[in-house]
Design a protein around this nucleic acid. Sequence first.
DNA 1: AATCTAGGCTCAGAAAATCTAAGTCTTGCG
DNA 2: CGCAAGACTTAGATTTTCTGAGCCTAGATT
Lengths: 291, 291
Amino acid sequence: MPVSPPRPKDLPLTALRAFEAAARLNGFAAAAQELGVTPGAVTAHIKQLEATLGAPLFTRTPRGVRLTTLGQQALPHFTQAFDALGQAVNDLRAAAAPRIVHIATLPAIAQLWLSPRLPALRAAAPDITVSITALEIPPNLKRSPYDLSLFYSDAAEGRLTQDTLFPVCAPSLAARLKTPQDIAHHPCLSDATWSDDWQLWAQTLPDPPHIPQGPTFSLYALAVEECVNGAGLLIGHETLIANHLKDGRLIAPFPQRLTLPTGLRLWSDRPLRPGTAARFVADWLRRNPIG
Amino acid sequence: MPVSPPRPKDLPLTALRAFEAAARLNGFAAAAQELGVTPGAVTAHIKQLEATLGAPLFTRTPRGVRLTTLGQQALPHFTQAFDALGQAVNDLRAAAAPRIVHIATLPAIAQLWLSPRLPALRAAAPDITVSITALEIPPNLKRSPYDLSLFYSDAAEGRLTQDTLFPVCAPSLAARLKTPQDIAHHPCLSDATWSDDWQLWAQTLPDPPHIPQGPTFSLYALAVEECVNGAGLLIGHETLIANHLKDGRLIAPFPQRLTLPTGLRLWSDRPLRPGTAARFVADWLRRNPIG
DNA sequence: AATCTAGGCTCAGAAAATCTAAGTCTTGCG
DNA sequence: CGCAAGACTTAGATTTTCTGAGCCTAGATT
């Protein structure tokens, strides 16, 4: 009879992380998104926690969940602990590979804004390796392994550029466009995640033209490419197509522009100490906001 | 082409915990013990971490491991973070079940010291549930789900009793024992984890008798039972056999006693706030140290 | 010197945790 | 009233994590 006590396993860390995310974001679906899993997984984790605790952490409503008092008391402690853990991981990662800078950004920004700048950046700092991860949603920098995050945002801090909206097309097509009303006769390309762009722009005109629904792309860079190939008009984000305008692959046929409240924002969560690679890259990008 | 970015998974929490334990305890084997897994599991975790970091955390020597500079820098942050997490878990558990007190203790203490006191404790506080977990090794209270820990220790803080060592036996056997020299003719029961006890005691005598090796038990309570049944002499820990002596099931045939530097110690890691169940139980046990 | 021992490593297979997919349920909203 | 959002459920797949047994090295022991 070996007395090897089947030690009561500690609460599983994964479940605790799920709880923290769900509590902080006020919903299992949002938590699932942040954690990169399906909502079902989060449900299971929370249930497991509640079962071993013997008390509910959330009250369920058909529209979502709400923290119980118990959950409310616990949340801040867990948030702090996981933040500290994330911080420790990031510090460790930075110490282990001090000349690698991890940037999280939108796929479109990665391809159309960041990528064109990389050769010059590499030339300016040959010893720095830039690692780019394309994400649809800005990550929680306190938790994720990124040094910098580059997304559209309406927050002022860290803003690199404004963004303006206006139609663009291939030069061959531009020749046939006199007024915005002519848009009605050509396919209007758009990006799936920015499906409102055309309407937003059109509504700034005194006489909004009809916008024929063209192909929709899940990658903005793909839409740009199609546009260059003459597939139709694209509603352009200035920050993303500046290079194409400059070298003439795309042309803006109309003068009307809509300035958006959002703009490209480069952001970090902890202080970028001078001399670090991340600091250098951030400073360099800020000095070179236009292509 | 769905751009569902196969998000670079965060470092696995389990591996980080393994690193923290291994670094803090200065060895994979010790970490494995604390975590309740085999050393191979720890090895694998550390290797995984080092692989994704691209840098070693430990330098391996055939006698053990030593932290690299990188590991040394990282350790305190991780220790803090995991302590905070453990704290949060414990607080949560306490809030979820405020009238349950979890005690970790040696199997022997659980059966021979704690268990006999439980009826009176229950009578004193019927609403409190005491949960006892038997462990061979004192747990890390900052991490494990226990409110109180009850082990032998030479630390002064929280000491309940001293412990003394002396042979005991069933009354029938005692009749045939005149002097310690008579021990040589009877089997000497012992506990596997306290294999030195007989020698320790014998060496306090002017003329140490020969101690015949008797059966060894992995559970002290089992040895006590056998002793009661007349199987031989047992080297007794006063704290554990006080009840048997009091009601005559066991007898101490010789006056020689060895006072040990260790004693029963009841300990908690965070402050026991007045009014909590854990505080009540701790106070009660301190007021009733002898059976 | 030969052996022993502590501590880590390796590898295959097993066990457990975790995740997904697809369908269900409920209810506030248009 | 139908729809959409959000959570739940279940079965099965996948990934993580663990074990077990044997191997390896170098200090300690004899």
